[in-house]
Design a protein around this nucleic acid. Structure first.
Lengths: 203, 203
DNA sequence: CAATGACTATGACGATTGTCATATTTCAGC
DNA sequence: GCTGAAATATGACAATCGTCATAGTCATTG
């Protein structure tokens, strides 16, 4: 596969970003971590680090949204929620609570590029828009599943926002406390909220 | 006041961290932003940037927890929640959705210090512990208020975790989307969850 | 075989970083 | 007013950053 090097760089960047944040992940770290050639970075990503970050964000977004959508279709809203949370728990525990969410990292961390881009607000907003798009994507999957179960559009939107936001926050809290306890607590409460909303809708 | 310079540096660091993240905030930025003398930084913070970050985290933690605890005591759980969310909304809108939560920034962003500390895991954990302590502090205030209203210890702990985690995640999402809509949605749902839990407890 | 293109290797560049050493200033307390 | 400590100013240091230029390798074509 000719795109192996490029893909490894993107996946490695997403992984490092989820562990350290955007600015703490240097391109030299990426090539070290993925055992890829350093000279290829400007070849595969002519727009530099900003492009690599952007591709890492959309990559991480799809990596979550694709199985999430499948789980929602196969197992319903509650099953999809369980699968969503389980995947985050797996990532946290597999990395010793080192890796969080790379999309959240972009949403929190402001990328400080080369001197010419220091005040380039447009380029900055582009990364934020990408992160926002990923969140909106996840939210939309949740929202559609809730709609299918008979909830109103407004309620579905609100609950989807609550689910995505609370899980993102919880993952960060788990990383800080090196414990999955917050995830357990949030999972229980979210399941109660959704089951209550669903039973209320079909009543 | 002799501590004015020091305090301005801490507050400025917290502000910049909430806007850009930890690593995108340089000490030169802090002194530029706060109009404080650069030479004083090693005087007031002999342990360097790591100490400044640590003090900024605990400062930001108290800045939230003190009014939060007061609101919880004065206006009850729901009123306290409203005040909690309102303060975040104020900060987001006052800065044009630039400033998020500096504590979350520390929880997501890994500080990359000088070469001698690159592999110093202990010093790294210290900052994470501090962020975790702030989250635990906020959670504890919420938890105590719920306990006072008659909820069980387990339920109070779970709901407190949900509230803090979801709001942290929501603030980051608002920053990404440059909109307070997620905060509106989460606020409505959290209020419904808490009122339902309270009425269930006193029944 | 030649050659054309994609890909890799390596070193250098200016800029910025955190830190430190060394003045210089400020200002209580005597 | 003098003195000594606290605070501030300034410049330099090594290290690292993202980027780029140049040269080398390699495979797939004609």
């Amino acid at each position: 596969m000719t795109t192996t090097t490029r893909d490894k760089m993107i996946a490695g960047a997403a992984d490092l970003m989820s562990r350290r944040g955007v600015n703490a992940t240097s391109m030299r770290d990426v090539v070290r971590h993925t055992a890829t050639p350093r000279g290829s970075i400007s070849h595969h990503f002519p727009d530099g680090k900003r492009q690599l970050i952007a591709e890492a964000v959309t990559f991480a977004g799809k990596q979550v949204s694709i199985p999430l959508e499948k789980a929602m279709n196969d197992r319903g809203v509650i099953g999809g929620l369980k699968a969503f949370i389980a995947s985050w728990r797996r990532q946290l525990e597999a990395t010793g609570f080192e890796a969080g969410c790379p999309v959240l990292a972009v949403a929190v961390d402001r990328y400080v590029g080369e001197a010419s881009d220091r005040d380039d607000e447009a380029a900055q907003q582009h990364l934020l828009d990408l992160a926002d798009g990923v969140f909106a994507d996840w939210r939309q999957i949740m929202r559609a599943a809730l709609l299918r179960e008979g909830l109103t559009a407004e309620r579905s939107e609100r609950l989807a926002t609550l689910v995505v936001a609370s899980i993102e926050g919880t993952v960060a809290m788990c990383r800080a406390s090196r414990s999955a306890d917050p995830l357990d607590h949030v999972q229980q409460e979210l399941e109660m909220v959704l089951t209550a909303a669903l039973s209320q809708a079909t009543r």
